[in-house]
Design a protein around this nucleic acid. Structure first.
Lengths: 235, 235
DNA sequence: ATTAAAACATGATAAATATCATCTTTTACA
DNA sequence: TGTAAAAGATGATATTTATCATGTTTTAAT
């Protein structure tokens, strides 16, 4: 079942793919060669909040969480970047240290693009710069939506939303027509929704009883996306 | 008493002033003339979430809240823009509808800049464009900090933070050496912190008992900014 | 295959926060 | 300046969510 018509997924995703698409074939080849890509193991850290940035990253394959460690050492996931997305550019462009940390959620294939190369392209290609400006402006609206839900939504609403988003990102790689499986730890789900791990487990049980999802070990499948969207209470 | 050294205020403020500063005197005069400025009464709405944007706004005087209306018709304040800041550019640059609403928090003097004029300058001035890119990247870090506190912080922490931020913004216009007064409704404070109004009132009482603040009617003064920063638990 | 560690699950309890009802004070304006 | 409306304040209560303790299952490495 599709999200189209019942949930505005574009309001929850960044759009750096369009920035990458502004590159010419030659630029793409020189910057983002798969040859130079590194393999990251699940859980491996790309960069940490507070570090001086030395470049940006392009995700060929896999998923990367961007997160912050709060006071009580609890982790808040800000965004999950998917295949074909860029990360790490905020710090470079703002001329600041990394505002958050990044770690692979699963085995991933990622190219590192040195700061200088990135800034060169930015200087040369006005299209690239314009798309970047557009993408960053769109991010404002994504984060704003998140902020609103995070501070006003109930635990169930926040978890439902997290499931919707992560399910959508899990579609890449799933054969068409087949329901994608969500393969995240309960802890990561908790850190996405900003709630306690035990609460995630209990709410998943509730969703299961309502036939919204089914599980097998840690894996979760969405049976009824319409009900899940309802549960997220997103109007 | 100053914030410097004890609290990184720059991590909580946008930086569109630097964008405006990229304008030449002539550009500034033609775009942001005080002559064409409009007076907005307290509570008056500049634009609403979902509207098609027709331009951006420059705040000569006053304060403007940017907010979203959640499901339960509760309002979440995303950001309070101060004197000399721009607002409304995200929607134009992202080529989307306004992602949030904006309303004057006090009597304000604001210039409307038509979309075309804004885009013209953007095309002409690479400095303007570059600063805009930098400002938007910085906003990511601001919103990210907000998101982390909003989903993980306690009510007291969030209110303390709101007070720190709004106090800082109230400094403009306060004679140097004098403690600025915070003049927001309890409801607005609640909507900034994302907590219930009654909870704000009770927490303010607590802060008063701890000698952190003093009040007179709705007005609030900070007696002890160090204690307030501690209360915000921001590390 | 065995086993230690990690992740998952569950129940009991405590803590935090929202909601509701009501009263008082302040503010705005006719 | 009187008065209605809005905002502020308070107490009682309900609800939500986190925390703690403990047991079970799964996972991964030897």
């Amino acid at each position: 079942m599709s999200l189209s018509g019942i949930f505005p997924i574009e309001k929850w995703n960044f759009s750096t793919q369009t920035v990458v698409n502004a590159l010419t074939e030659a630029e793409y080849q020189s910057l983002i060669t798969k040859q130079g890509a590194q393999k990251y193991k699940k859980g491996e850290i790309l960069f940490k909040e507070g570090m001086v940035p030395s470049g940006i990253y392009f995700i060929h394959q896999g998923k990367v969480k961007k997160y912050k460690n709060g006071p009580a050492s609890r982790e808040q996931i800000i965004y999950v970047a998917n295949k074909n997305e860029l990360i790490g550019y905020h710090a470079i462009l703002a001329e600041e240290r990394y505002p958050d940390s990044a770690a692979a959620l699963e085995e991933s294939l990622i190219t590192f693009i040195p700061k200088e190369d990135f800034l060169d392209i930015l200087q040369q290609s006005t299209t690239f710069a314009r798309r970047l400006l557009k993408a960053l402006s769109h991010e404002y609206s994504v984060l704003t939506n998140n902020l609103s839900v995070s501070s006003q939504g109930t635990a169930a609403e926040r978890l439902a939303l997290a499931l919707i988003l992560i399910r959508e990102k899990s579609k890449t790689g799933t054969p068409a027509g087949e329901e994608p499986s969500i393969n995240l730890s309960r802890a990561d789900l908790a850190n996405m929704a900003g709630i306690a791990k035990e609460n995630v487990i209990r709410l998943l049980k509730e969703f299961k009883n309502e036939q919204i999802i089914r599980t097998e070990g840690r894996k979760i499948w969405v049976n009824d996306i319409v009900k899940l969207v309802n549960r997220s209470n997103y109007k």
